[in-house]
Amino acid sequence: MCTLPEPRRLPGDVAMWLFILAELTVFAILILAFAVTQRLQPEVFALGRAQLDTSTGLAMTYSLLSAGALAALAVQQVRLGRARRGSVLLLGAWLVALVYVWIKLTEYRHLIDAGLGLERSTFFTLYWIVTGFHFLHVLLGLVILAWLGWRCWQRQYLAPRLSGLESGVLYWHMVDLVWVVLFALVYVIR
């Protein structure tokens, strides 16, 4: 007797995956524009990057990735029928992600106070555009996590109808994926 392999399942809604691909394409263009300009003006970028604190970038990375892990754990708990536990994990993800927002806003304020605004140099023009665009996505992700947490608490997501929850959490993972590349490119690569 043979057993058929389990069909490969795509978590979430296909529309969310298409949206994620579209978002990733936009980010790819911005990231490659940053890399091309860095190639053309290496001194300007080295000077600009020296103004950024790598440990701050690392702290933001930890915040975003930890929030992603908590959100993924929340999905698992809801699948097991533990909606309230999932809701608490989503609240945890939301709070941990808030740390990123606080650090990023502190960094932005510090840069503005130091006169390192959008028009300071090509590096900072691209820095503000790329990280600002990503920051807006984090803010939207926070709204989504809060909404998912509230819906979980109300036991609105019951297995196997978890497409909405999975799609919302996938959006957060997309934000994480982009940040992994941004962190390397903007803060670390010398």
């Binding site: 490969r8 978590p11 995956w17 990735l65 992603g68 993924a72 994480d176 994926l177 992994v180 590349v181």
Partner: peptide, 18 residues
């Protein structure tokens, strides 16, 4: 990126095209 895609996004056992 691979850990996020396969682990968090659960594509390790997802459709290969995605």
């Amino acid at each position: 990126g691979w850990v996020i895609v396969d682990g968090f996004m659960e594509l390790r056992h997802g459709p290969w095209k995605w």
